[in-house]
């Protein structure tokens, strides 16, 4: 098992778990959104790094080149980035509305306000 040779996956897993942990552990709604973003970005890195072909070059057709990287995951990730941006924008807009309605963006404070009838 070549641990170092798989370093791109290690980066992906560390980023993914960092993001996931932030989403679960943070109390601040904005920080949660940031964690969610890190979590998503780790998946982008995962897709992009898996499309690298050893010794391959950018997929631009040229008679002198035999080996190309795989462009398809890049295109998929362009779509996923758009989805990610939309999610982020919506999440932040919701946080703005939450702040207007509750006067705070700390989850505990919001829960405390809800418990008082």
């Amino acid at each position: 098992m070549n641990v170092l040779g798989l370093y791109n996956y290690w980066i992906v897993v560390v980023l993914m778990m960092t993001g996931f942990y932030v989403v679960i552990a943070q109390n601040n709604l904005i920080k949660k959104v940031v964690g969610l973003n890190i979590f998503q970005v780790s998946v982008f890195v995962f897709y992009i790094s898996m499309s690298k072909v050893k010794g391959g070059t950018a997929p631009i057709l040229d008679p002198g080149i035999q080996v190309y990287g795989n462009p398809l995951p890049h295109v998929l990730i362009l779509t996923a980035i758009v989805v990610g941006v939309a999610t982020m924008a919506l999440a932040l807009a919701l946080v703005v509305r939450i702040r207007h309605a509750y006067g705070t963006i700390e989850e505990d404070d919001i829960d405390a306000q809800e418990e008082e009838p």
């Binding site: 996931f20 989403v23 709604l29 949660k32 969610l36 979590f39 998503q40 998946v43 995962f46 897709y47 898996m50 995951p73 996923a80 989805v83 999610t87 919506l90 999440a91 919701l94 946080v95 509305r97 939450i98 309605a101 509750y102 919001i110 809800e114």
Partner: peptide, 30 residues
């Protein structure tokens, strides 16, 4: 106003779900 928090939590859980789904698809594609 609780609808806002409900939507926010739905968004967090839903996005995690969708991201898990693309990780799965990525592994299949590999």
């Amino acid at each position: 106003r609780r609808a806002l928090m409900a939507a926010y939590r739905y968004l967090i859980m839903g996005t995690i779900g969708a991201t898990f789904y693309i990780i799965g698809v990525g592994l299949l594609y590999m």
